[in-house]
Design a binder for these strands. Structure first.
Length: 514
RNA sequence: GCCGCGUUGGUCAAGGGGUUAAGACGCAUCCCUUUCACGGAUGAAUCACGGGUUCGAUUCCCGUACGCGGUACCA
């Protein structure tokens, strides 16, 4: 899907939008680790997005990816999409380039032209299919039985190529050679070439496959480090071979393959999110084809700081007990050899915990615009910014997601929508009603309006009425908040003010009377 | 099927020949709090299995099992 590399202290991320669109956890983490590595080594972070496969390209995906990364705080220093110092970057604009290298490989005997139609390939797979080998590959054992420039005579090949016959260029995998390379995370990895098929390098439409493109681009763009997901490990030997044939192994970048992020049942998928009720994409994504909306972490109420923190720690740690890292700290402490080699299961509960931690640690200032947006979404308009800040400080400890701020803060700015009388009603009596009438009178006359004073007065009155504070505290809370939650009642009263406090007590009193 | 990569509590994980095998999430109990949280304390729970090597293996080696990935004119 993507790969990253550094050259001249510039990290470039090759990024092809996935066919389903959406930017999932694994994708963001790959970018994050690349970003951290780049920054750690004092480089610039340059993002390059490609239209690698136009037939599958999802409209809008490109802008969406930039939006996600911007939200996550991984904004590129420079985004190169069309020009740039080693551009062009769009695969379609580099078509000739790839073609030349592919032809060079053919000329040097490392690749060949293949004319087999999709039907013929399918036929081949059926024909050679056995219980031991359910998916026959186009490899050294069967390539001499197919229609290609190795089996056809020169004239036929020439004729086919100059007629309209579609053809591809395939790599000619050597027999029984061991390809080994060093992975920065896993150490030496080796594979026998006999086990790998003759991968297509150039498709019938003239576009390169990932295998050819990645090698050519990394060379031309002077990439020194290539980091990508573990799903690429099996095809790495093909890339190594291509490097050997085309540019020399000594110029090959260093490799690192990151572990996969797993869902509750294996590889994390979009379905897991739907099934288990947690997001898998960074931000909301609507599939333009199906119209399906997949909820993102942002919209779910995650702080970007928490989001990247979760991701960073899912497969990496600095060796200490520290778990909460800011982006800056991660840059400082990140090292590729502390990245794990084993896949990690994503734990949504722990992700929520990280968010809770970040909310608790964030200033009211930082949270202000986000909380205001949540409230606005629920049609709660807040004019007094200072009051909102106070409220945020008061309730942030009990918010796991940003969206929780609605429930926890809305009653500071409007009458509680629903007042839950159930906890109060059974034990309600005339004595309490009388007491609250007195509270109203007292509060209306109170000379000072602050929580300490209100609490003192309240308790004195309770004592005078021979009521235990516990008996009347809960009713007061229900009156002001509407439910059994929230910070101290008197602090709430202080913030919402005399008029509003009295009004709420009166209203609830009426409801309890009837 | 074949190939590759993995395997420390339910999950994320530290450690890497001799440790009481850290810590975190979650869970349980208690304390604090006249609400809900926060906070604090305590607890249950782990080296996949079998063989080596070694005085000693969770750690090194080999098998097995399991998981994941790959096996496309997708990336």
């Amino acid at each position: 899907m993507y790969i990253c590399g550094m050259s001249d202290k510039k990290v470039r991320v090759r990024f092809a939008p996935s066919p389903t669109g959406g930017l999932h956890l694994g994708g963001v983490r790959t970018v994050l680790y690349n970003y951290l590595f780049a920054k750690k080594h004092g480089g610039d972070f340059i993002l390059r997005i490609e239209d690698t496969d136009q037939t599958r390209f999802v409209p809008g995906a490109e802008a969406y990816i930039f939006d996600c990364l911007k939200w996550a705080g991984l904004e590129p220093d420079e985004s190169v999409q069309h020009g740039g110092d080693v551009g062009p970057y769009r695969q379609s604009e580099r078509k000739e380039l790839y073609r030349n290298y592919a032809d060079q490989l053919v000329a040097e005997g490392h690749a060949y032209y293949a004319f087999d139609t999709p039907e013929e390939l399918e036929q081949m797979r059926q024909q050679f299919k056995t219980p031991e080998n359910p998916t026959p590959q186009y490899d050294h054992t069967i390539r001499m039985k197919m229609r290609n420039s190795l089996t056809l005579d020169g004239d036929t090949v020439h004729e086919l190529m100059h007629s309209d016959t579609p053809y591809v260029i395939r790599i000619k995998m050597p027999e029984n050679e061991t390809i080994s390379f060093n992975d920065m995370i896993r150490g030496e990895v080796s594979v026998n070439t006999s086990l790998i098929d003759d991968k297509v390098l150039l498709k019938a439409d003239g576009m390169p496959t990932y295998h050819l493109a990645v090698v050519v681009d990394d060379h031309l763009m002077q990439i020194s480090h290539a980091f990508r997901g573990e799903e690429w490990l099996p095809s790495a030997p093909v890339h190594v071979l291509l490097w050997k044939y085309l540019f020399g192994l000594d110029r090959m970048p260093e490799w690192a393959h990151f572990p996969l992020i797993l869902g509750p049942n294996g590889k994390l998928s979009k379905r897991d999110g739907a099934q288990y009720g947690f997001p898998v994409f960074a931000m909301n994504w609507t599939d333009p084809k199906t119209g399906d909306l997949v909820e993102g972490f942002k919209e779910k109420g995650f702080l970007p700081e928490a989001f990247i923190n979760v991701l960073a720690v899912l497969g990496w740690n600095d060796g200490t007990e520290q778990e909460i890292f800011s982006l800056e700290e991660m840059v400082e402490k990140f090292s590729i050899d502390r990245v794990h080699s084993a896949g990690a299961k994503f734990d949504y509960e722990k992700a929520r915990w990280f968010n809770h931690e970040w909310i608790k640690r964030s200033s009211a200032e930082r949270l202000l615009p986000l909380v205001r947006a949540v409230l606005t979404q629920h049609n709660v308009e807040v004019n007094d910014e200072e009051a909102l800040k106070k409220v945020i400080d008061l309730v942030k400890d009990r918010c796991t997601l940003l969206t929780d701020f609605y429930e926890q803060a809305n009653y500071f700015f409007q009458m509680p929508g629903l007042v839950d009388l159930a906890p109060v009603q059974p034990k309600w009596n005339e004595a309490k009603a009388v007491f609250f009438q007195e509270v109203i009178r007292n509060y209306q006359l109170a000379s000072v309006w602050n929580s300490d004073e209100l609490e003192r007065n309240f308790k004195e009155m309770a004592a005078a009425n021979q009521l235990k504070p516990g008996e009347v505290m809960l009713p007061l809370r229900i009156m002001l908040v509407g439910g059994k939650f929230g910070p101290g009642v008197f602090e709430i009263a202080e913030i919402i003010g005399r008029e509003e406090t009295v009004k709420r007590i009166e209203q609830t009193l009426k409801m309890l009377q009837s």
